[in-house]
Computed example of a mutant assay.
Amino acid sequence: MVRTLFITKEKPYPPAGGVELRNWQNINIMMQYGSVGVFSICQWSASSQVPAGIDFWYPYTLAKSVSSWENWKRRAWLLRPNAHPDVDRLYQQAAAKKLEKVLAEFQPDLTIVEEIWLYRYLKIIKRQKCRIIFDEHNIEADLFEQKHGALKMRLPRLKSIELDFIRKADQTWVCSEEDVALVKTLYGRQFQPQAIPNGIDVASYDCVRLEQCNPPEGFGEKQHNLIYMGTFSYPPNKVAAKLLIEEIYPRLRKSNPNCRLLLVGRSPTKSMLQAAELEPGIIVTGSVPDIRPYLAAASVMVVPLQQGGGTRLKLLEAFASGCPAVSTTKGAEGLNVTDGEHLLIRDEIEAITEAVEQLWSKNALVEKLTAAAYELVKAEYSWEAVSKRVDQALQQLL
């Protein structure tokens, strides 16, 4: 039996986005091996409701302000080795002391730490006699460079922190074989990360696929409804939403006046909310308790991502729900998918809109794509499939 403590930023349940979905997947898988505890470092007040099966659940809410000494250290991050503003933002001494107490009381055999932003807590975890897994949802240095280039000192610092975390952890998990190769390219072929795919509880989407899930009230016919899901404080999702609102949706609406665009997820931007006020066909939901009714209301998932890391859980949710998908190459990156077999992959705006029109007019194509995509998500991206990859990784580690 293995006692596992997850250390996450924000609580992983209920899962409200891709970060939480990956954490919740891994938590459920590790429950098969023994007791699981979760210590979450939250930036806003979090519910203390304990999900079934969790032996220890502690969402710690960070204080809104820090001491003058800690504030000075944050301002002087360039003078400190392996310091970074986004890493400092999630560290407080009171949280570190609480984590130290939790580690002493829970006595984990294994600690799984989510992403590099919790790096400053690593020295506390290292004091315990437990193995450490560093779970990289994205290769952050690569993602930062996609968005900002080599911006002043932040990119070298991110690389330094990421490399140090990989070195000090006993094992590193990434989302795909592409990310394994990327780690080796950036940091050296001596590192051997484990590819633990993002996966979903496929059976929980059966109600959508079998048309037993009702769309939200007032959504009516779904024939020409597009959907895009995400946390819109995440810059790549902001860019994708902007493309949908300004480029893709207007083109489709010209030939399909009843077309609607559903932008579903927390932290919508001001421009998204303004667009929804001006155009009744654009629906911006904010955070929703259950994504499945919105998937039931959609006829096509469109993923026009230009940047990103890891793999896209939104595509896996579409596959499990029987919703056909159109994605850019970047949006489908890291998934074992083939254009024309599981989805349509298009990179130019005009080609994306043509692909959507194609799906709206060719039922046989939709049936072919959704059938193959469903078989793929069951075989490679279900929790059962991911469990086998986790088991292999743990055998190497333990």
Rank of each mutant, 00 (worst) to 15 (best):
K11C: 11
Y13A: 13
P14F: 14
L21E: 09
R22V: 12
I27F: 04
N28Y: 02
S35I: 04
V38H: 14
F39T: 12
S45K: 15
Y60P: 02
T61L: 08
K64P: 01
W72T: 13
P81Q: 11
V87M: 08
L90W: 15
A94M: 04
K101G: 11
L103A: 08
D109L: 03
L110A: 11
L122M: 11
K123G: 01
R131C: 09
I132T: 13
I139P: 03
E140R: 00
A141Y: 06
L143S: 07
P156S: 10
L158F: 13
K159I: 02
S160F: 01
L163K: 15
I166F: 10
A169F: 08
A169W: 01
D170T: 11
S176W: 05
E177K: 12
E177L: 12
D179F: 13
L182P: 00
K184N: 02
Q192V: 07
I196H: 06
I196A: 04
V202R: 01
R209E: 02
P215M: 07
F219L: 13
Q223H: 07
Y234W: 15
Y234M: 03
K238Q: 14
A240V: 01
L243V: 06
L244P: 13
L244S: 11
E247D: 10
S255Y: 14
P257G: 10
R266V: 09
S267H: 11
P280G: 07
T285G: 06
A297P: 14
S299I: 00
V303I: 14
P304E: 06
T311A: 02
E317Q: 15
E317Y: 00
V326F: 10
T328W: 00
V337F: 07
I349L: 07
T353F: 01
E354P: 00
E354C: 07
V356I: 09
K362M: 06
N363G: 07
T370G: 02
A372C: 06
K378D: 01
A385C: 12
V386G: 03
V386M: 04
R389I: 00
